[in-house]
Amino acid sequence: NKASVVANQLIPINTALTLIMMKAEVVTPMGIPAEEIPKLVGMQVNRAVPLGTTLMPDKVKNYE
């Protein structure tokens, strides 16, 4: 099972992601793969992401 990116804290809307905000966890359904964490640093979320929520591609601005 592959790990996904999960919010390590509440991430407010329009916040630029940092390493400390994210952790890798095996979750269902799968979100953004954990190996993409370095790519996500500096990207902004387009909505608030509660603690423990899986980061889905549609929650990150300009994620492809």
Score class of each variant (00 low, 15 high):
1 N>V: 14
1 N>I: 14
1 N>P: 13
1 N>R: 13
1 N>F: 14
1 N>L: 14
1 N>M: 15
1 N>Y: 14
1 N>S: 13
2 K>Y: 13
2 K>Q: 13
2 K>T: 11
2 K>G: 13
2 K>N: 12
2 K>R: 14
2 K>H: 13
2 K>P: 12
2 K>V: 12
3 A>I: 04
3 A>M: 11
3 A>V: 05
3 A>L: 09
3 A>T: 06
3 A>Q: 10
4 S>V: 02
4 S>H: 04
5 V>F: 04
5 V>E: 02
5 V>D: 00
5 V>Q: 03
5 V>P: 02
5 V>A: 08
5 V>M: 03
5 V>C: 07
6 V>Y: 03
6 V>E: 00
6 V>R: 01
6 V>S: 02
7 A>I: 05
7 A>N: 02
7 A>R: 00
7 A>F: 03
7 A>W: 03
8 N>K: 11
8 N>P: 00
8 N>Q: 11
8 N>D: 08
8 N>R: 14
8 N>S: 14
8 N>G: 10
8 N>E: 03
9 Q>Y: 06
9 Q>V: 13
10 L>I: 08
10 L>M: 14
10 L>D: 15
10 L>H: 15
10 L>S: 12
10 L>F: 15
10 L>K: 07
11 I>D: 01
11 I>N: 04
11 I>G: 00
11 I>L: 01
11 I>T: 00
12 P>S: 06
12 P>E: 09
12 P>W: 07
12 P>N: 08
12 P>M: 07
13 I>K: 14
13 I>G: 06
13 I>S: 10
14 N>M: 08
14 N>D: 12
14 N>W: 15
14 N>S: 06
14 N>G: 10
14 N>A: 07
14 N>Y: 11
15 T>L: 05
15 T>H: 05
15 T>G: 01
15 T>Y: 07
16 A>C: 13
16 A>R: 14
16 A>N: 11
16 A>V: 14
16 A>E: 11
16 A>W: 12
16 A>M: 12
16 A>T: 13
17 L>V: 00
17 L>Y: 00
17 L>K: 00
17 L>H: 02
17 L>Q: 00
17 L>I: 12
18 T>C: 07
18 T>A: 08
18 T>W: 05
18 T>N: 03
19 L>R: 11
19 L>A: 10
20 I>M: 13
20 I>G: 12
20 I>N: 12
21 M>S: 05
21 M>Y: 05
21 M>A: 04
21 M>H: 08
22 M>R: 00
22 M>P: 00
22 M>E: 03
23 K>L: 07
23 K>V: 11
23 K>F: 08
23 K>H: 07
23 K>R: 15
23 K>A: 09
24 A>M: 06
24 A>C: 08
24 A>D: 05
24 A>H: 04
24 A>L: 06
25 E>T: 08
25 E>G: 10
25 E>S: 11
25 E>N: 07
26 V>K: 09
26 V>P: 05
26 V>E: 08
26 V>H: 12
26 V>W: 12
26 V>Y: 14
27 V>S: 01
27 V>K: 06
27 V>T: 09
27 V>I: 06
28 T>Y: 15
28 T>K: 11
28 T>M: 12
28 T>I: 13
28 T>P: 01
29 P>I: 09
29 P>M: 06
30 M>V: 12
30 M>Q: 12
30 M>N: 11
31 G>E: 02
31 G>K: 00
31 G>Y: 04
31 G>W: 04
31 G>S: 01
32 I>C: 04
32 I>Y: 01
32 I>F: 04
32 I>Q: 01
33 P>I: 03
33 P>Q: 06
33 P>M: 06
34 A>I: 05
34 A>T: 00
34 A>Q: 06
34 A>H: 04
34 A>G: 07
35 E>F: 13
35 E>L: 11
35 E>S: 14
35 E>T: 13
35 E>Q: 12
35 E>N: 13
36 E>H: 12
36 E>N: 10
36 E>V: 07
36 E>W: 10
37 I>A: 03
37 I>H: 00
37 I>Y: 00
37 I>D: 02
38 P>C: 13
38 P>A: 09
38 P>R: 09
38 P>M: 09
38 P>W: 10
38 P>D: 09
39 K>L: 13
39 K>T: 11
39 K>V: 11
39 K>C: 15
39 K>D: 11
39 K>N: 13
39 K>M: 13
40 L>P: 01
40 L>N: 02
40 L>Y: 02
40 L>H: 01
40 L>K: 03
40 L>F: 02
41 V>N: 01
41 V>T: 04
41 V>P: 03
41 V>F: 00
41 V>G: 01
42 G>V: 08
42 G>K: 00
42 G>Y: 04
42 G>M: 03
43 M>F: 10
43 M>I: 05
43 M>S: 06
43 M>A: 05
43 M>T: 03
43 M>K: 11
43 M>N: 04
43 M>Y: 11
43 M>W: 02
44 Q>S: 10
44 Q>C: 13
45 V>I: 05
45 V>D: 05
45 V>S: 02
45 V>A: 01
45 V>L: 08
45 V>K: 00
46 N>L: 14
46 N>S: 11
46 N>H: 09
46 N>V: 14
46 N>G: 05
46 N>A: 11
47 R>F: 11
47 R>P: 08
47 R>I: 15
47 R>G: 13
47 R>K: 14
48 A>W: 10
48 A>C: 13
48 A>N: 14
48 A>E: 15
49 V>N: 05
49 V>M: 08
49 V>F: 06
50 P>A: 11
50 P>T: 08
50 P>K: 08
51 L>H: 14
51 L>A: 15
51 L>R: 15
51 L>K: 15
52 G>E: 01
52 G>S: 04
52 G>D: 04
52 G>H: 04
53 T>C: 13
53 T>M: 13
53 T>N: 09
53 T>I: 07
53 T>V: 11
53 T>W: 09
54 T>S: 04
54 T>P: 07
54 T>D: 05
54 T>A: 07
55 L>G: 03
55 L>N: 00
56 M>D: 07
56 M>R: 06
56 M>I: 05
57 P>V: 03
57 P>C: 06
57 P>D: 04
57 P>A: 10
57 P>T: 01
58 D>E: 10
58 D>A: 08
58 D>H: 11
59 K>Q: 15
59 K>R: 15
59 K>C: 15
59 K>A: 15
59 K>I: 15
60 V>W: 00
60 V>K: 02
60 V>H: 04
61 K>E: 09
61 K>V: 14
61 K>Q: 10
61 K>L: 11
61 K>W: 10
61 K>G: 05
61 K>C: 11
62 N>L: 08
62 N>K: 07
62 N>Q: 09
62 N>R: 08
62 N>A: 08
62 N>S: 07
63 Y>L: 03
63 Y>G: 01
63 Y>P: 04
63 Y>M: 02
64 E>I: 15
